[in-house]
């Protein structure tokens, strides 16, 4: 048995994943479309010329929908393709640990994905001082209410949300055995996260099934609403002079952490079952 460091193996896998993303034209094109869309919203919408908080509000729904889709595109075939081509089995004969493999796939893809997301938001943020430069200055502005710090918080939360979306996608990629299953799973999860939980929440409130006290819990039920809650509470804070009530901040943060751990945990668990033999040992 070859004795190696899991971290070393993880970075070997991560390097290949990053290079795979860079060498895949469809993913590069998608990343470009995402960046152009974000910058386009900042440029054409009212947010870019209104300040950082209006820009955050303009982009929030947009990234909430686009990031799961982008994560889906970046990740749903990542592990499954290795399984279908036999590379997963070949790698196993090199005594690669499951954590090293899944961790490597995750780190490599996440570097590319988070890089695209953060860079796009950075460009959108840079547009704010450019577009607001020509604004009349006789209007009173509350600098504390609209600061770059709030936009930085939004970018950080978006980065975290991207990591969660990718972790869930990787779980699907590791659990599925065919491309069709992976596609269906990932589509169902994306639809559920993007509109399913919100729809259920509205329907529940309207019908009285969901009590007011249960709203915070339901907000935290999906990564999307938890992310939205965090952004509204911490990055936006006040809209039209009124504090935003978007669930419980600790609950939303905990929910995102839980989704992240759940996604990666399932991916490691399902990628392969350890076969306990080797070196004078039986199965």
């Amino acid at each position: 048995m070859v004795d190696r460091d899991i971290v070393d193996d993880l970075f070997v896998v991560a390097t290949r994943e990053l290079r795979t993303v860079v060498k895949t034209p469809s993913l590069v094109a998608l990343a470009g479309v995402f960046a152009v869309s974000i910058v386009g919203v900042a440029w054409a919408g009212t947010g870019g010329s209104g300040g950082f908080v209006p820009l955050t509000l303009d982009l929030l729904t947009f990234v909430e929908v686009l990031i799961p889709l982008l994560a889906f595109a970046f990740g749903y075939r990542s592990i499954l393709n290795d399984r279908l081509t036999g590379e997963l089995d070949m790698l196993r004969t090199f005594d690669v640990d499951r954590i090293a493999y899944v961790g490597g796939v995750y780190v490599g893809r996440a570097m590319a994905l988070v890089g695209v997301v953060v860079a796009s938001l950075f460009i959108a943020g840079v547009l704010v001082p450019v577009l607001t430069a020509d604004q009349p200055t006789f209007l009173a502005q509350n600098r504390a209410a609209d600061s770059i710090l709030r936009f930085v918080r939004f970018v950080v939360f978006t980065g975290g949300f991207t990591l969660v979306a990718l972790a869930v996608t990787l779980a699907v990629s590791a659990a599925a055995r065919t491309l069709r299953t992976a596609f269906v799973f990932a589509t169902v999860l994306t639809v559920a996260f993007v509109i399913g939980v919100d729809t259920a929440l509205i329907a529940g409130l309207a019908s009285g099934v969901v009590p007011q006290e249960g709203i915070a819990l339901l907000f935290a039920a999906s990564p999307n609403s938890a992310f939205r809650g965090l952004v509204l509470e911490i990055a936006v804070g006040v809209v039209s002079g009124t504090s935003v009530n978007a669930g419980s901040t600790p609950l939303n943060a905990f929910a995102l952490l839980l989704w992240w751990l759940l996604g990666l945990g399932i991916a490691v668990w399902r990628v392969w079952s350890p076969v306990g033999w080797n070196d004078d040992g039986g199965t």
């Binding site: 070859v2 795979t20 060498k23 895949t24 081509t85 036999g86 590379e87 090199f94």
Partner: peptide, 19 residues
């Protein structure tokens, strides 16, 4: 002692394109 135990070639191997 550092020798790999088993080398394996599956029935229909394929490798990542672009490399």
């Amino acid at each position: 002692t550092n020798q790999r135990d088993v080398g394996y070639l599956p029935q229909r191997p394929a490798f990542r394109e672009g490399f």
